Simulated assay, not measured.
Amino acid sequence: MVDGAVPTPRIAALAGLIWASGTLPQFDPEIPWSSAVITRAQQLERGNWGVGAVGDAVTRTMNAIIASAVIVAMSVRPRG
């Protein structure tokens, strides 16, 4: 992503998936997260790697987890 090289389909799909999950910066903290690198990561996410659908699935899953946690938190009443 830093030098703009064309990745293999597998690397592009993995990078796009990890970017879509929001965890890519954790995997290599030495990457200089400039606007150009972020744009490249977004391109990989939206690329023709099948990652767009995976990114949507990750987003839906995270939303479902958050909604479930909120429902559980609201239904548990403190004893007192």
Rank of each mutant, 00 (worst) to 15 (best):
T8F: 00
P9N: 11
P9T: 06
R10T: 06
I11L: 03
A13L: 00
A13F: 00
A13M: 03
A13S: 06
L14M: 09
L14D: 00
L14I: 07
A15C: 06
L17E: 04
L17W: 02
W19P: 05
S21K: 02
S21L: 01
S21N: 02
G22C: 00
L24N: 08
P25N: 07
P25H: 04
F27H: 12
D28I: 00
P29G: 07
E30Q: 15
P32N: 05
P32D: 11
W33T: 07
W33V: 04
W33Q: 08
S34E: 08
S34K: 07
S34N: 14
S34R: 15
S35K: 10
S35D: 15
V37H: 09
V37F: 09
I38Q: 10
T39P: 02
T39E: 13
R40W: 02
R40G: 10
A41G: 00
A41W: 01
Q42S: 12
Q43W: 03
L44R: 00
E45Y: 06
E45R: 07
R46G: 08
N48G: 14
W49R: 08
V51L: 03
V51C: 07
V51M: 09
G52N: 10
A53L: 11
A53K: 04
V54I: 10
V54A: 06
V54H: 10
G55I: 05
G55R: 06
G55T: 06
D56W: 09
D56H: 10
A57Y: 01
V58A: 05
V58G: 11
V58C: 05
T59A: 14
T59L: 02
R60N: 09
T61D: 13
M62W: 10
M62K: 15
N63D: 15
A64Y: 07
I65T: 11
I66Q: 15
I66T: 12
S68Q: 15
A69G: 12
A69N: 10
V70D: 14
V70Q: 14
V70C: 13
V72D: 13
V72P: 00
V72F: 08
